[in-house]
Computed example of a mutant assay.
Amino acid sequence: MAASYTLLQFSADPWNARFEDADKRSAFTVYVDENPNLIMKVAREAPWAQQHPDIMGPSNAFLYFGPGRTPGHLIYGNSTYHTMAQARNRKKETSTKGNVIALWETSQLADPFAAKLTIKHAALPIITEIVTTLTLNRIAHVSNWQ
C-alpha cells in the first residue's frame, strides 16, 4: 500500500492557517499583506520539504485579491498567473471521480487542530498546488463567492 502523509491545520481561519506534520514540523504557512489590496503567500517550509525528496514544483504561491477581497488571480512560484475562477473550476457532475490523492477533514472538538489534510505519496509532487487550492476554496466558501 502506498504511503500517506498527514498535515494538521491549525486555525480554522483560511486567512491565517498553518500546517504541521505529525512531528510538529511546520510544512506550510499562510502570510497576508493588505496594502491596499490583499496579497496572500502560501509558503512551503524548506525544512519540512527536505524530508520528502519527491516534492517538486514551486515552494510558494501568491494570491492577489481584488478590491474588498474579491477574486483576483494567483501565481505558483515564477509561473504565469491564473484567475482564481480558473483555479476553482470544478469537474462536471458527469465526469468520473478518479483517484483521490488528498483528503481534507475538519477536526473533532477535542482535537487541538482545526482540520487535517491526508495526502497520498503520489500527490507530493504537487503538494503546493493542493494546499493553495484548498486555501482558495476555503476562502471562497467563507466569502460566499459564486
Rank of each mutant, 00 (worst) to 15 (best):
146 Q>S: 14
135 T>A: 10
88 R>W: 02
110 A>I: 11
57 G>I: 03
44 R>A: 03
107 S>F: 06
139 I>P: 01
86 Q>F: 11
10 F>P: 00
145 W>Q: 06
31 Y>I: 09
62 F>V: 11
78 N>M: 09
19 F>N: 02
61 A>W: 01
1 M>V: 11
35 N>E: 10
118 T>F: 00
3 A>Y: 07
90 R>Q: 14
77 G>K: 02
9 Q>C: 14
38 L>E: 08
41 K>S: 12
74 L>A: 13
52 H>A: 03
131 V>C: 02
68 G>W: 05
14 P>F: 08
108 Q>N: 13
47 P>C: 05
55 I>D: 03
35 N>I: 07
102 A>N: 05
72 G>I: 07
18 R>K: 14
61 A>S: 15
14 P>L: 07
88 R>F: 06
57 G>H: 02
121 H>A: 13
112 P>W: 12
37 N>A: 10
55 I>P: 00
114 A>M: 07
103 L>I: 14
128 T>V: 06
119 I>F: 00
75 I>E: 08
51 Q>R: 11
135 T>V: 13
33 D>I: 09
3 A>Q: 12
116 K>H: 14
120 K>T: 12
14 P>S: 09
14 P>D: 08
34 E>P: 00
120 K>H: 11
123 A>H: 02
76 Y>R: 01
72 G>N: 06
135 T>G: 06
30 V>L: 15
86 Q>D: 15
124 L>G: 04
92 K>H: 13
90 R>N: 10
79 S>A: 15
25 R>I: 06
